[in-house]
Design a protein around this nucleic acid. Sequence first.
DNA 1: ATAACACGTTCACTTAAGTTAAGAAAAGAC
DNA 2: GTCTTTTCTTAACTTAAGTGAACGTGTTAT
Lengths: 193, 193
Amino acid sequence: MQDILFEFISKYVSLTEEEKNVIVSLDIFHSVKKGTVLLKEGQKSKNSYFVLKGCIRTYYVLDSEEKTTGFYTEMEAFTPPCVISKTPSDFYISCIEDTILTVSNSDMELEVNSKFPKFETVCRILSEELLAKQRMDFDEFKTSSPEQRYLNLLQKRPDLIQRVPQHQLASYLGIKPQSLSRLRTRILEKDKG
Amino acid sequence: MQDILFEFISKYVSLTEEEKNVIVSLDIFHSVKKGTVLLKEGQKSKNSYFVLKGCIRTYYVLDSEEKTTGFYTEMEAFTPPCVISKTPSDFYISCIEDTILTVSNSDMELEVNSKFPKFETVCRILSEELLAKQRMDFDEFKTSSPEQRYLNLLQKRPDLIQRVPQHQLASYLGIKPQSLSRLRTRILEKDKG
DNA sequence: ATAACACGTTCACTTAAGTTAAGAAAAGAC
DNA sequence: GTCTTTTCTTAACTTAAGTGAACGTGTTAT
């Protein structure tokens, strides 16, 4: 299971056995049950996550309604903005499946960064890449209609549509569950006709 | 003028006079006229930008229509995704005002990073911060209506609404110029009533 | 087993954005 | 200055998303 993390890191730098041992000894691997809430609105946290298996989701509660904004699955890393800004979180993170993930905190990263300078390089490249990727996702979202966004998601992350409840997908697409349902039947009828 | 860059960097690390001189000697400061296109769709580029004065904008051309996705003004840095992914750009960058900016390329950064390790730390922190900030912007966009997004922009970046043409603002808000115009009169009438 | 709840779909109705077109106002070119 | 182009607004009409409610299904709890 840990190999998944090392496979991920190896995309950026190669690690020695010693370095791998240091990471393992940090005891960051955790197994959590479906439904577990990892972070609540209002909490302060220094934790970053890397999903080895399963799926976690970020959501806001606005007007006592859940607004899902992100899903993180196998081989995806996530650092909540509140960790960077050092302010209370304004959203929740929970597991929508039984999940195996790593939980690392920013103090730990600071320490590892100073011991292994190449780790800082990994962090730099990773966040540069994520920033670029997220910017493209944002641009795509802005420039397309809900229907296009759904079709797009179907292409890029077909697994999500299978494993995630529709009402969570809907707010992820920026619409209401009823609209997603309607939009799907509209697409099906186009395919037929 | 260069002091603006140093003021910006000083938020992350303090620079010695020698280090400042190295940066100045790189000759990255440029003055460009309104309307200048800095990057075209299809081009490859290694350039990152930092705006000292003025405003640059990123936009796609889809179905021969411009879709504006970003504005960068004083003290804002921008690295196009194509620089990270090393693929041809799928959008344009142009100056919507006479602009003074720095243009640095990734080879240069690689060199500076190895000469001054603390520069890599600046880059890491900066991209982590931008990533967190952008995620919050994206979340806000997803969870609000066009009208809310406009009101939000009015609060957060009131200058943009003054200095940017409406049709560019509209696509930045994910709507058509006519809808923005209508939405504005709708808000005005609410204020009255 | 049954009650309670969560989830997805459907429908009728409301609201707002997209579309097309026309005209006024402002900015830029000559 | 005038002419041209761009920008912004307005209006009528179309399309799609939001809203509120009902219903069927499937799951959870007791």
